[in-house]
Simulated scan of single mutants.
Amino acid sequence: MSRFTLEEYAHRLARTRDAMQARQIEVLLITSPENMNYLTGYDAWSFYTHQMAIVALDREPIWIGRGIDVPCATATSYLQPSDVIGYPDEYVQSSERHPMEFIAAELERRGLGSRVLGVEMDNYYFTARCFHKLQASLPRCTFKDASGLVNWVRIIKSEAEVELIRQAGVIADRAMTTAVETITPAIRQCDLAARIMQAQITGTEAYGGAVPGGLVMGIGAKAAAPHLSWTDDPVGSDVVANIELGGCRARYHAGLARSVYLGNPPGQLRELAAIVRDGLETVFASVAPGRTCAQLEEAWRGVISRFGLIKPSRIGYSIGLGYPPDWGEHTASLRPGDATELQPNMTFHVILGMWQGALSFVLSETILVTETGHESFSRMPRELFVVS
Score class of each variant (00 low, 15 high):
residue 227 H to T: 03
residue 282 T to P: 05
residue 325 P to V: 07
residue 275 I to C: 12
residue 310 I to W: 15
residue 309 L to D: 06
residue 298 E to I: 04
residue 268 Q to P: 00
residue 228 L to E: 14
residue 309 L to N: 03
residue 295 Q to L: 05
residue 312 P to A: 12
residue 302 G to S: 06
residue 226 P to M: 08
residue 291 R to M: 11
residue 272 L to T: 13
residue 249 R to I: 00
residue 330 H to W: 08
residue 305 S to N: 08
residue 280 L to N: 00
residue 331 T to S: 13
residue 220 G to M: 02
residue 261 Y to H: 05
residue 269 L to G: 02
residue 308 G to L: 07
residue 217 M to S: 05
residue 236 G to Q: 05
residue 311 K to R: 15
residue 271 E to A: 14
residue 254 A to F: 04
residue 310 I to P: 00
residue 280 L to S: 07
residue 266 P to D: 08
residue 269 L to S: 04
residue 328 G to N: 12
residue 221 A to Y: 13
residue 274 A to S: 15
residue 229 S to Q: 09
residue 231 T to K: 06
residue 300 W to I: 01
residue 287 V to R: 02
residue 219 I to P: 02
residue 215 L to W: 10
residue 279 G to W: 04
residue 246 G to F: 10
residue 296 L to R: 02
residue 326 D to M: 09
residue 232 D to R: 10
residue 222 K to Q: 10
residue 283 V to P: 01
residue 315 I to C: 13
residue 266 P to M: 02
residue 235 V to A: 02
residue 250 A to C: 06
residue 265 P to E: 04
residue 247 G to R: 01
residue 291 R to T: 07
residue 288 A to S: 13
residue 234 P to E: 11
residue 313 S to K: 10
residue 219 I to S: 03
residue 277 R to S: 08
residue 306 R to S: 10
residue 269 L to M: 09
residue 287 V to Q: 08
residue 285 A to N: 13
residue 283 V to H: 04
residue 238 D to H: 10
residue 307 F to K: 07
residue 303 V to A: 12
residue 284 F to N: 15
residue 307 F to S: 04
residue 264 N to V: 13
residue 248 C to V: 08
residue 325 P to D: 12
residue 228 L to H: 13
residue 265 P to Y: 10
residue 307 F to A: 08
residue 317 Y to T: 09
residue 302 G to T: 01
residue 324 P to M: 12
residue 326 D to R: 08
residue 244 E to M: 06
residue 221 A to T: 13
residue 218 G to R: 08
residue 273 A to C: 11
residue 261 Y to A: 00
residue 284 F to C: 15
residue 320 G to W: 01
residue 217 M to T: 06
residue 282 T to W: 00
residue 221 A to H: 11
residue 313 S to M: 04
residue 271 E to L: 08
residue 304 I to V: 15
residue 254 A to S: 15
residue 227 H to C: 06
residue 259 S to E: 05
residue 305 S to G: 05
residue 311 K to S: 12
residue 274 A to Y: 01
residue 329 E to D: 09
residue 269 L to P: 05
residue 314 R to I: 01
residue 309 L to H: 06
residue 265 P to I: 07
residue 231 T to D: 04
residue 225 A to F: 06
residue 320 G to R: 01
residue 234 P to A: 14
residue 267 G to Y: 08
residue 270 R to L: 14
residue 302 G to N: 15
residue 282 T to K: 12
residue 242 N to Q: 07
residue 220 G to C: 03
residue 299 A to G: 09
residue 238 D to V: 01
residue 240 V to E: 02
residue 322 G to T: 09
residue 238 D to Q: 14
residue 262 L to H: 06
residue 309 L to T: 03
residue 289 P to R: 03
residue 302 G to P: 00
residue 272 L to R: 14
residue 242 N to G: 02
residue 309 L to V: 07
residue 306 R to E: 14
residue 220 G to T: 05
residue 262 L to T: 03
residue 278 D to Y: 09
residue 298 E to P: 02
residue 273 A to G: 11
residue 257 A to Y: 00
residue 283 V to N: 07
residue 317 Y to E: 10
residue 320 G to N: 11
residue 261 Y to G: 00
residue 313 S to R: 14
residue 223 A to K: 09
residue 268 Q to H: 11
residue 231 T to W: 12
residue 275 I to M: 10
